[in-house]
Design a protein around this nucleic acid. Structure first.
Lengths: 124, 124
DNA sequence: CAAATTTCAGCTCTACTGAGATTC
DNA sequence: CGAATCTCAGTAAAGCTGAAATTT
């Protein structure tokens, strides 16, 4: 498989971080970790790798010197678009044997599971 | 999560190998790898670990000196029963929010996907 | 000789723990 | 002072690759 991601560049963490930035905008690494589900320790390396390719920018937060503000660059936005294409292609191949109704059922049931367990995790 | 497996002892490879042995009986490591989907390189370590705890036995095949015949011990059979209990409990918790019908639908759809892609993999 | 079997060393990716330094 | 933030080192499980030795 290798999901087609490796062809464009990257691994799952890269996509998840870029997608999170595109969805909810610039934020500190800690906040991005909470939003994306990426562990803080892995966040450091992920930002390093993306920043080295100018896909994200890491700038100090003027209001709180503990924080870095991470933001998408134009190149990062373009890369995200590429990754989303790859992802859509891989999903199409994965779900090929399913009818439209079956696909909808599957995502509905999986969403149920995610919601349920997210809630249980938040309540600990 | 840690699936409850860690409580009893083991990791996924241990369960998969024990279950494969229980299902289709003693076999060489290469055959077990094909049946269980465990990579041959990982097979060696998995058998080592289970043999060290007397859960499986590794004996030379008298008809082909390249092969080891791996077989379940009585202790291995008991351990498998324990792992299956843990697995059932973990599944129950995972699928808790789903109705019986939803569970059946989910396994049906996932089986479709597995069959489809197993076939494609076999045809390369 | 070609193919099968076992073994070993090493690598990637996701995910985590624990510890330290800095700043609020 | 306690808490939050970032960083680094290390670990584990699942899944690979590649190479070597032996036997068929």
């Amino acid at each position: 498989m290798t999901d087609g991601f490796s062809a464009v560049d990257a691994r799952g963490y890269h996509y998840r971080l870029l997608a999170t930035l595109a969805e909810s905008g610039p934020a500190s690494q800690a906040t991005l970790g909470r939003r994306s589900g990426i562990h803080l320790s892995d966040m450091v390396a992920t930002v390093n790798e993306l920043a080295a390719r100018d896909l994200v920018r890491r700038s100090p937060d003027p209001t709180d010197r503990r924080r870095n503000v991470i933001s998408l660059t134009p190149a990062g936005t373009r890369q995200l678009a590429r990754l989303e294409q790859q992802l859509a292609a891989a999903q199409d191949e994965l779900l090929a044997p399913l009818s439209t109704t079956q696909r909808q059922d599957l995502t509905a049931v999986l969403s149920l599971l995610l919601d349920h367990h997210d809630q249980r995790a938040a309540e600990e």
